[in-house]
Design a protein around this nucleic acid. Structure first.
Length: 997
RNA sequence: GCCGGAGUGGUGGAAUGGUAUACACGAGGGACUUAAAAUCCCUUGCCUUCACGGGCUUACGGGUUCGAGUCCCGUCUCCGGUACCA
């Protein structure tokens, strides 16, 4: 003693921090505030693996660093504790999701604490606590009771809308959403409406509204899913098929905020990739809506949406989505049968087929014609499922010369493809969507360019009342209901079939107890099982619950004031903390959580409930740590029959008994693969020996079998192929398998035969994959903490590479940072003895080492480049060890630098240095003094005609002119300049001297 | 297809336009040990040479510059996102 013992030090300080609430943060301080937020986890049953803490470690480093820099830092943690896995588990086991969740959270808290994170646990929130979701429900009611006024461009309380209805009816009101669902009425009519009629009239204005919506219905999970929960037609969780279905659903009118969500991105310090994803997701497009009258009809007209109104003279046909409302009316008797069949076929095709089968062209002619509004030309009206009912108007004008899909469609159905620009070429192969050239065959825009033509046409169409410029968004309103149990109950009840929000004073609406967590026999959501699920004892409550993203859309606000019972967050706390300064989390939330949370924030801001412009100022996406899977290779066998066969050659038979398990080491397996791949000459000897070894094993088994079954006319087992099998990475060290441990791991391998390397080891194959239990590549951080300590794990995860990158885990490297911590300890405890530091003044060389570290670490943390800091620590300690520096003047500041990374070790040393226990967390960052870094001399590369020949030293303070003079005067040219005189000397200040001869 | 990002030793990676390959892992050699573990020391981009040395090298091809891993243009490859969005 005292050698470095992380296990003792770390337990001691974690207990100290907990007992003294060291990281408790107050809502008042003279210091500037800084808010560091981690994306809170869903507490899954599997616990944390080494990949999970990556972002938490980084944010904890920033937190501790900012504290040293004099900030009052808010750094909380909580749990997104509503969710599907706990519910699926409940369905299978009958265990209440609350119990499972509670247990999982305990594990998480324990694991997080063992990593030494400096969370203020007194602020912990859980989305499934009624005291929390009370306010989630409260925000929902605010949405329910608001509408979006396009004139003021913000959300307003419904009371302002109804006041206007009472004053002047629905006239002149511009609200976000689809006006097609809304009634027109006068103030007088409004006054005569019954309560039910009034509510029905208001419903289509609400920001939380109920509507029959095409949804992603997942029968496997028994619920609807949002678009970002569906991947390739399968549910993201569980991988069940998903189908389109029309159902009444609660929606949130996020589309009202589409433009503001888009604009706001410009000011955010977020990764470009995430901003770009949100932009694409919102999908703003600027175009025009154009009306095509239907030929032979007085009233019928078709509205199409286009971003290329300039190509309208090339619009030779229209295409409608099969769901378009005019289809029935337009279809001629002659085409009726074909159209009906096509619509039926479309319905049968699941969303999945439509997506995997995008290249196939299909469609049907309705028999009707529309009139091109610019030249009156009749254009046939077709149906095709490549046109989506949900986007634009559900109808497009097809311009085969300018759009590839229209082009393929026209080719397929032999429709004309007229050129409309003198720049269009090769229309016999493909469409030309470029905007170059001048228009031809285009009436009033002939000879014009793209810009001129677009302006002229929009003006022309607007004048005739046949079109207008229009902006469209790809983004749809967000579906807000889930037919599940384990979520926030939607605080709505029904009276006479009309939806009412429950009174705020009746919140929270607590999730009821039910006997089983499945849908009811009549197909209602699980809440249908609850008895007395009635408001005021008589009005039935809504049966769906909120989606997973509800609670996570505002949790960062609750941390500011987590126990407030009167308000979701107090005004003072909200104004003090403002928005999140640094948000750390995975990129997978780019178009889900991060968009919804911004939406809710903008909404709350419209109501004057929050004060900043955006919720998350800076976002960092930590990369994923991937697992490194290990494989063993199983040799597959077949029987070779003896004796004559009908075909005259050997016949292979199915195995008559379960074969022996033979596992072959990697290089031998590779040799056989190579030999089979005709590369035999390179691997010949190894392959031969591998074949022989397999042969020896199989002969033993086949002899044995043949002896026991003399009647069987079978000769021998024969090698067929290899199957790679995952081997648990915990049984493998440096790709060498612990054979005995592996035999004990699984019963079926207990009697396995191993074909080893020539040195007697078994070498496994490897592959980088996502960490997952089923791949046996999960590395548990607890094991590493036990062996190396939390500080080593923290350092190593940072050392692994740039934070934002995806990188494979490799346990081997952790010994390197382990070594660093020991060396660091020995600077303070030479020979692992007691603390022994001198008070001697530091030398310039030592000061230089220290101050370079101060400067670099500071720079690195400010730009989130933690891996280079860890490297620098190692260099620094190596240098100080070489200098035999055991001086307090150098080492004390160094402890502070290291403390955000290795907090336990730093606390221990800090206390040994005579400071109060636990005080390093709030000490001051050492001051950087540039003068210690200044060099006496500077080395310049010296070149002749641009080619570097030599390094020359100059005084660091020398001016360019002095250097030039020195070079001219030196004997350098005599030696290297081939005796020539210098024509010119170029001095690049501080860097380079070039002599031109 | 479109959008975003990245290509540097056996591996993870470092490098304000200025000595490319820091730091670490792995590997090889050595010391201490009865032995192992632990620890410490040396070597380690590639080619060539007994050696001294020489040549080459940041995916590939060009360009700008006295000087390019870094900036510009083109090509290829990989990763992530997204996709009948009119």
């Amino acid at each position: 003693m005292p050698a470095y013992r992380p296990e003792e030090i770390e337990k001691k300080w974690q207990a100290h921090w907990k007992a003294h609430s060291t990281f408790r943060t107050e809502n008042h301080s003279d210091k500037p505030k800084y808010y560091v937020l981690d994306m809170f986890p869903y507490p899954s049953g599997a616990g944390l693996h080494v990949g999970h803490p990556l972002g938490y470690i980084a944010s904890d480093i920033v937190t501790r660093y900012k504290r040293l820099r004099g900030f009052n830092v808010l750094h909380p943690m909580g749990f997104d504790s509503f969710g599907l896995p706990a519910e699926q588990y409940a369905i299978q086991t009958g265990q209440h999701p609350a119990l499972t969740t509670e247990k999982n959270i305990e594990t998480y808290v324990q694991q997080l604490s063992s990593l030494g994170f400096s969370y203020d646990w007194s602020r912990e929130v859980r989305t499934s606590d009624a005291s929390y979701y009370k306010w989630t429900q409260w925000i929902f009611l605010k949405l329910f009771n608001s509408w979006y006024n396009l004139d003021t461009d913000r959300a307003e309380p419904l009371t302002e809308l109804t006041a206007r209805f009472a004053a002047s009816g629905s006239e002149g009101i511009r609200a976000a959403g689809d006006d097609g669902d809304r009634l027109s009425f006068s103030a007088g009519q409004w006054a005569l409406f019954s309560e039910k009629q009034k509510l029905a009239a208001v419903l289509p204005y609400r920001l939380a509204y109920q509507q029959d919506t095409y949804v992603n219905w997942c029968p496997g999970l028994g619920t609807v899913l949002s678009n970002d929960e569906v991947k390739d037609g399968l549910s993201e969780r569980g991988g069940f098929p998903v189908e389109r279905r029309l159902m009444p659903q609660w929606n949130l009118r996020i589309t009202a905020y589409a433009d503001r969500l888009l604009q706001g991105l410009d000011q955010l310090d977020w990764p470009d990739a995430v901003k770009e994803m949100q932009r694409n997701w919102i999908g703003k497009s600027i175009g025009a809506e154009v009306t095509f009258p239907v030929q032979g009809s007085e009233n019928a007209q078709i509205k199409v949406y286009t971003t290329r109104v300039d190509t309208i003279y090339g619009a030779t046909f229209l295409v409608l989505a099969p769901e378009h409302e005019l289809v029935d009316e337009l279809t001629t008797p002659g085409q009726r049968a074909a159209v009906d069949e096509y619509i039926a076929a479309t319905k049968r095709r699941s969303e999945r087929d439509r997506m995997t089968d995008v290249k196939a062209v299909s469609g049907v002619f309705t028999g009707a014609y529309a009139l091109n509004p610019v030249n009156g030309a009749p254009v046939p009206i077709w149906l095709a499922d490549y046109v989506l009912a949900g986007y634009g108007t559900g109808a497009v004008m097809a311009v085969p010369s300018g759009d590839q899909r229209d082009y393929l469609f026209a080719k397929h159905f032999n429709l004309p493809i007229p050129a409309i620009s003198d720049a269009q070429q090769g229309l016999d192969q493909q469409a030309d969507p470029t905007k170059e050239g001048h228009y031809i065959n285009s009436g009033i825009i002939n000879g014009l360019t793209y810009k001129e033509a677009t302006q002229k046409l929009i003006a022309f169409l607007e004048e005739k009342g046949l079109g207008k410029g229009k902006v469209n968004f790809r983004q749809r309103d967000a579906i807000f209901g889930r037919q599940r149990y384990w979520g926030e109950p939607i605080p709505i009840y029904y009276k006479d079939g009309t939806a009412y929000g429950i009174a705020e004073s009746d919140l929270p609406l607590v999730l009821p107890e039910i006997d089983e967590y499945k849908p009811t026999e009549t197909g209602e959501p699980p809440l249908g099982r609850a008895s007395d699920w009635l408001y005021k004892g008589k009005y039935p409550y809504e049966l769906s619950t909120m989606p997973g993203w509800a609670g996570s859309s505002w949790y960062y606000l609750r941390y500011m004031d987590p126990t407030n019972e009167a308000r979701f967050v107090s005004e003072e706390a909200e104004q003090y903390w403002g928005s999140v300064d640094l948000y750390m989390g995975g990129a997978e939330h780019a178009t889900g959580h991060l968009l919804y949370a911004r939406f809710w924030y903008l909404f709350l801001k419209d109501l004057g409930l929050v004060s900043s412009g955006e919720p998350f100022q800076k976002l960092i996406n930590q990369g994923m740590i991937l697992g490194r899977s290990n494989f063993v290779y199983r040799v597959n066998m077949r029987w070779v029959q003896t004796g004559p066969t009908t075909a005259g050659h050997e016949a292979f038979e199915p195995l008559p008994f379960s074969p022996p398990v033979i596992l072959i080491s990697k290089s031998k397996k590779d040799a056989i693969d190579a030999a089979q791949g005709m590369a035999f000459e390179h691997t010949g000897e190894l392959a031969k020996s591998a074949y022989q070894q397999i042969g020896a094993v199989t002969k033993r088994y086949s002899d044995q079998f043949n002896a026991n079954h003399p009647e069987a006319d079978l000769a021998a087992l024969d090698f067929e192929s290899f199957t790679p099998l995952h081997a648990d990475v915990n049984l493998v060290d440096n790709d060498i398998l612990d054979v005995e441990a592996f035999k004990n791991w699984r019963e079926e391998y207990a009697d396995a035969e191993f074909i080893l390397e020539d040195n007697g080891t078994y070498i496994c194959g490897t592959e980088v994959e996502k960490m997952s239990k089923s791949k046996y590549n999960v590395v548990n951080p607890n094991i590493l903490i036990d062996k190396y300590g939390a500080d080593a794990l923290r350092l190593y995860e940072m050392f692994l590479g740039p934070l934002e990158q995806y990188k494979p885990w490799n346990t081997n490297g952790i010994s390197g940072v382990g070594g660093f911590l020991k060396k660091f300890w020995r600077l303070f405890h030479p020979e692992d003895g007691p603390l022994a530091l001198t008070d001697e003044p530091a030398t310039p060389a030592e000061l230089k080492v220290l101050h370079r570290a101060i400067q670099k670490v500071q720079e690195d943390i400010e730009k989130f480049s933690f891996n280079t800091s860890v490297s620098l620590f190692m260099i620094t300690v190596n240098e100080l060890t070489a200098l035999k520096c055991h001086k307090r003047a150098i080492l004390e500041p160094l402890v502070l630098l290291v403390s955000p990374y290795a907090p336990h070790l730093a606390e221990e040393l800090w206390q040994e240095l005579g400071h109060e226990a636990g005080s390093i967390s709030h000490a001051a960052y050492p001051e950087f003094r540039e003068e210690f870094l200044v060099e006496d001399t500077v080395v310049y590369p010296l070149a002749i005609n641009g080619k570097v020949r030599e390094q020359m030293q100059f005084a660091a303070a020398a001016t360019a002119a002095e250097i030039e003079a020195a070079v001219l005067a030196s004997d350098f040219l005599a030696k290297h300049g081939e005796g020539k005189a210098a024509k010119k000397v170029i001095v690049v200040p501080g860097r380079m001297v070039n002599v031109v001869v």
